[in-house]
Every structure is written in C-alpha cells, then in structure tokens.
C-alpha cells in the first residue's frame, strides 16, 4: 500500500471516469449556470427575495410565523442567516415531515433555486451567517487531511464516531453520519450549530481548520476498505456478532460434519 492516494489513478478507474465525464457534459451547463453565478443585480435579487417570501409564506410560516417570529413548536428565524436555511432546507430536514425527537435528513423538498430564494429572503430580514462561497470551500487546496483528523477526533468524533459514521446521544437523539453530506452543508452545520450540535464559529475553529476537517471527512468517505468488509466502521460490536455467527457458526458446521459417520 505504498500509495493509498494512488487509488484514484488505478487502471480500472480511468474508463469509469470517462463514462462519468461524458454523462456529466450534458448536465454541466445547467449546473454551471447555477453555481458559477454572476453577481446578481439589484432587481434580480429583489425578485429572488420575493420568490423566497412566497415559498416561505406557503411552506414555512405556519410554524415559524409570518414574520419569522417562531411559535411554540418552531424557533424564531430572525438572524439565523442564509447558511442555516441552506443547511436545514437543503438537507431536507426542513420542512419537517414528522415531529420526533430529532429532525432527520431526507430528500430535499425544494430544489436548489428555491432553497437559494428562501435563504435570500430570510437573510434579507436580519443579518446572519452567509452561505459559504465555492472559493471559501476549496478544501482540496486549503485543508490538511492529517490536521483535520486531529481536529475531528478532538471536536467531532465523540458524537459522530471515529469514522464519521454517527453515534447515539441522549433520549433517542443521535449525531448523524457524515457520509455523503455535501461540503457546504458540513460547513454550514459547523457555523450554525443545528439541533443538538454546538456552534464552531471562525474564532474557535478557523476557516482553514474547518476545511481541514472537511478534507479529512471526505478522505474517510473515499477511503476504500483496506482490511476487508468494513462492518460499518462502528467498532467491536459488529466484530463480536460476526465472530459468533460466521466464525463459530462455520466451525460448528464443520464439527457436525466431521463427527458424523460417513455413509
């Protein structure tokens, strides 16, 4: 395993990448127009805010109030910022499907444009953390995997588990797995502290440190299984189960055959 990072350069991967690339070209134009945006002019922005307002009034105001003032079942949204809206709505947590102990990640209800409009609307009423730009999120350039691992184990592993697979909190709450979470959502979670999660602002965890953490998470996500099936990367519980079921189970099966009389 001289070069684990060389995994991406493996022969078998190249054709696969080509196919993905060809597939991608067709869709790139749409995505590109959305992500590499020109700075919006004032009228476009106010139109976006207006669209966001309409979505908010229809989909959110029942719980969060007509003026973001909140209610008995939902927090006020004054000053939560665009980052918070992008995280909550973009990961499908909002709007809530069922009111259980914890609001879970699911397929988002609104598309990217609608989420952006909602975020713009909420941010227009009171300032708050903004959505990080692509430039801010260049973790491949600005992050360090090893340092990120150190930071992750200090600040994140206690809830999200050593391999970012998630873990239990009290009373049925849990820290979700970070596998497959988009980079900007991780960043937004860090700066806004959704649900049980504490806030890691730029003073206590600098932007570079955040990118390092993200780089480590992405490395863990992409890491192939080095020693066989991963068993969920949850530690010895799965190993113990496997040893009784498969290990001892197989040996008992052999022992039964071994001690039976041949016909």
């Amino acid at each position: 395993m001289r070069h684990i990072s060389g995994y991406r350069n493996h022969k078998g991967v190249a054709p696969l990448l080509l196919v993905i690339a060809l597939f991608g070209i067709g869709t790139t134009f749409n995505v590109a127009s959305a992500s590499i945006k020109e700075p919006m002019n004032a009228s476009a922005r106010s139109a976006q805010i207006e669209e966001g307002k309409q979505i908010f009034l229809k989909g959110c105001s029942t719980c969060h109030g007509l003026n973001l003032e909140g209610s008995a079942i939902a927090p006020a949204l004054m000053g939560v910022g665009a980052a918070s809206v992008d995280f909550q709505v973009g990961t499908g947590r909002m709007p809530v499907a069922d009111m259980s102990v914890q609001i879970a990640r699911k397929d988002p209800v609104y598309n990217e444009e609608e989420v952006a409009a909602l975020a713009a609307y909420v941010a227009s009423l009171a300032p708050g953390p903004a959505i990080p730009t692509a430039e801010q999120l260049n973790y491949e350039r600005d992050g360090s995997t090893a340092e990120g691992g150190e930071l992750f184990r200090n600040n994140c592993a206690m809830c999200h588990n050593f391999a970012a697979q998630g873990g239990a909190l009290t009373q049925g709450k849990y820290a979700p797995t970070l596998m497959g979470v988009q980079v900007h959502h991780i960043y937004e979670a860090l700066i806004t502290g959704p649900q049980s999660m504490p806030v890691f602002n730029d003073k206590t965890l600098t932007p570079e440190e955040k990118l390092s953490v993200i780089k480590w998470i992405k490395a863990a996500e992409a890491e192939p299984n080095l020693g066989g099936a991963s068993l969920g990367r949850t530690g010895p519980v799965a190993e113990g189960l496997l040893v009784w079921v498969l290990g001892l189970g197989a040996l008992i099966a052999v022992a039964v055959w071994l001690t039976s009389r041949a016909r």
Partner: peptide, 22 residues
Amino acid sequence: PEDAFIFIPVMGDQNAHQLFLG
C-alpha cells in the same frame, strides 16, 4: 501490488493484495 483495489459486490472496494493473500 499493495495499492491495487478491486470492487467486490456487498463488500465494496477492497485491497486486492490483502484480499487474495488472505
């Protein structure tokens, strides 16, 4: 080679060296 990987259904990407040695 120790950095050769192979995709095995259910198990995901596996290190081929370790897997076939074992």
